[in-house]
Design a protein around this nucleic acid. Structure first.
Lengths: 159, 159
DNA sequence: CCTATATAGTTCGACATCGAACGATACTGC
DNA sequence: GCAGTATCGTTCGATGTCGAACTATATAGG
């Protein structure tokens, strides 16, 4: 027994669902925004292999060359075991390479190859465009504020 | 070698990695915040089965009882095929149930059970606490603004 | 009506991530 | 030096999500 008046019937057909109490929650919107953003970016770069998906990681390596895998894993929020497969793939694609770290013979450092550097540069430009699309309707100061506040949230969750 | 140049060694050892150019990007922070938030919430509710992970979905069903699966899938950003497994599980746990929709004999509507309603209520309370933890250091207006801006981003990505 | 096409839910195989092992190396206290 | 413990990268089995089938029903055009 759905309480269907005319307006609700139309609503049932085509409109977005009514927000639950959680729709206004940070966690819910974080998740949804992230899923959509990720998918959207990947869909527009189907031709470029797996690199787009791991641009965050690649960019991190670019800014911190030679870091051991476990630090990279923690920084991007993945398990070190997950990173193994990813690095295997990116290494096979000639985008990065692993090498020994003199200070610790257990560890392996990660570096971008020359090709990897180009890929990161290229993708970063496209990511900026994607970024602009996502934040359409927000002023520049709002955009900066949004990113800053997300930083606060991340810090809170890391503690 | 390790202790002599103390500051450098300390930095290489323990500090967070330097931000890449992308660290300041929305996409990167969205992803990281979401991963951490999700994991964090789940870790503090290991005893409550799979319901915590799907609180967003359950809350949506609570606000929109009897909706067909494909609309739910779209609303939470999942494939309809993924939802099948999830609903199977939640149905088996007695949290929700599927039923026919008179208007369309292909479709199946989803409703919360009584137990499901209690679970949602209980988890929603705990989610609010989690929410507060995540936004520590933000004023109430900032928090509202953050959520609002995420809404804008979501809308942009849906278009 | 009837045929053609679209849609709802499901199944199935591919792939990503996780967590718990494990071998190799590092560190700490004696 | 040496024993015990911690850490690094890896492997492996389990689970979650995806995308491409498929079945059943719905809808549109002749």
């Amino acid at each position: 027994m759905h309480d269907s008046s005319a307006s609700e019937a139309a609503e049932a057909k085509d409109s977005p669902l009514r927000s639950g109490p959680l729709d206004r929650s940070l966690g819910y919107r974080l998740r949804l925004a992230q899923i959509l953003a990720y998918r959207n970016f990947e869909e527009t770069h189907l031709d470029q292999g797996v690199a787009p998906r791991y641009l965050g990681l690649l960019s991190l390596v670019s800014a911190n060359p030679g870091q051991p895998q476990n630090k990279l894993a923690e920084a991007v929020g993945l398990q070190k075991s997950s990173l193994v497969t990813i690095l295997d793939r990116l290494e096979k694609d000639g985008i990065l390479e692993r090498g020994p770290i003199p200070e610790d013979r257990r560890a392996k450092g990660v570096w971008l190859t020359e090709k990897g550097g180009q890929v990161v540069e290229e993708l970063s430009r496209e990511a900026a465009a994607h970024e602009a699309r996502m934040t359409e309707g927000l002023s520049e100061t709002d955009r900066a504020r949004l990113i800053e506040m997300l930083g606060v949230v991340i810090e809170n969750l890391r503690a």
